[in-house]
């Protein structure tokens, strides 16, 4: 009466098992009706599309400003959704499994605890990714529609004014730079990366915190600290004697290891302003995010492997 699976090894991070847990987490979240949020997003995008803009830059800048406004509203919402969602979902799911004792039934199967953790975070991130993808699609459609519309408007307006061909071309370039560029897609991807990091932070916190509320609040705090820590580090460096204080430099380095430096994600704002994002920037952001996600997941595992229920 030997089961056929008793021979298969139970090494860590077996892709199939992690996928099973990730897909299960994904379904769980979908059935919690998370996607309803997307309809709210659609409404916001449409509303933002019809928003009237105060004219602060003179008539020739209106077009560019309108597009920026649309992008910054929508990306703000996307970022808010991604961060709030990733923190809430990660902070809720793990304690829920412990409380409901569903975790017993999973860990009583040949499932290494690392696989469980990785599966959970992967499931949450998959949902964030899919949501962002859908929002990005909607956003791209609206933005390109709007850009084309503006292009026609502004250029005919410029021609009527008797602008030189050079000026018109530059105006056209300016408008297109604000449209749905690859940099724009890169910025959306950066939002995903940022939420992945903060999700891993929430995962780590939820492995040792006893209350979901504590996890959520602390995760948001770390998110904020991540935004300000580079400023703080600069300030520190400026006040301390330049180069002479080894302690401060070590502390800053340590701080940046523990708290992710979210200032690197300011490229998102730059993209909203129409500044292109380089491939290098995307690659280094991906590398950095991967580093933090792996670091925090390993730390979570370290805590979780000794945990009792």
């Amino acid at each position: 009466m030997t089961s056929q699976n008793s021979k298969t090894s139970n090494r860590w991070l077996q892709p199939r098992r992690v996928t099973v847990i990730a897909m299960h987490t994904f379904t769980q979240l979908v059935r919690m009706k998370v996607f309803y949020f997307l309809s709210v997003f659609a409404l916001i995008v449409i509303a933002a599309n019809f928003l009237d803009l105060p004219q602060f830059n003179g008539p020739e800048a209106i077009g560019v400003g309108e597009l920026q406004m649309l992008k910054s509203t929508c990306m703000g919402v996307m970022k808010l959704f991604a961060v709030v969602f990733v923190i809430a979902a990660t902070a809720l799911l793990l304690p829920k499994d412990v409380e409901d004792r569903t975790l017993y039934t999973i860990l009583a199967k040949p499932v290494p605890r690392l696989d469980y953790l990785v599966g959970k975070i992967a499931g949450v991130l998959l949902l964030v990714f899919v949501s962002l993808l859908l929002m990005d699609l909607l956003m791209t459609v609206v933005l390109s529609f709007r850009t084309n519309h503006l292009l026609v408007d502004q250029l005919s307006w410029a021609e009527a004014r008797g602008w030189t061909q050079e000026a018109i071309d530059s105006e056209r370039r300016d408008i297109i730079a604000q449209g749905p560029t690859w940099s724009f897609q890169g910025a959306v991807f950066a939002i995903f990366l940022q939420s992945a990091i903060i999700g891993a932070v929430a995962l780590l916190l939820s492995t040792f915190s006893t209350s979901t509320l504590f996890t959520i609040i602390l995760s948001f705090l770390i998110y904020l600290i991540g935004h300000f820590q580079a400023d703080a580090a600069d300030y520190y460096k400026a006040t301390a004697e330049a180069g002479s204080n080894a302690f401060t430099t070590t502390m800053t380095k340590l701080l940046s290891l523990i708290f992710p430096n979210f200032q690197l994600f300011n490229v998102i704002d730059a993209v909203i302003e129409g500044i292109p994002m380089t491939m290098n920037a995307i690659i280094s952001l991906t590398g950095l995010s991967l580093f933090y996600v792996v670091l925090y997941t390993m730390l979570s595992w370290f805590v979780f492997s000794d945990k009792e229920f």
Binding site: S9, N10, Y104, A108, P110, V111
Partner: peptide
């Protein structure tokens, strides 16, 4: 983990 191959709980 291997001890859990042959057990149901």
């Amino acid at each position: 983990v291997d001890s859990r191959n042959d057990v149901g709980f």
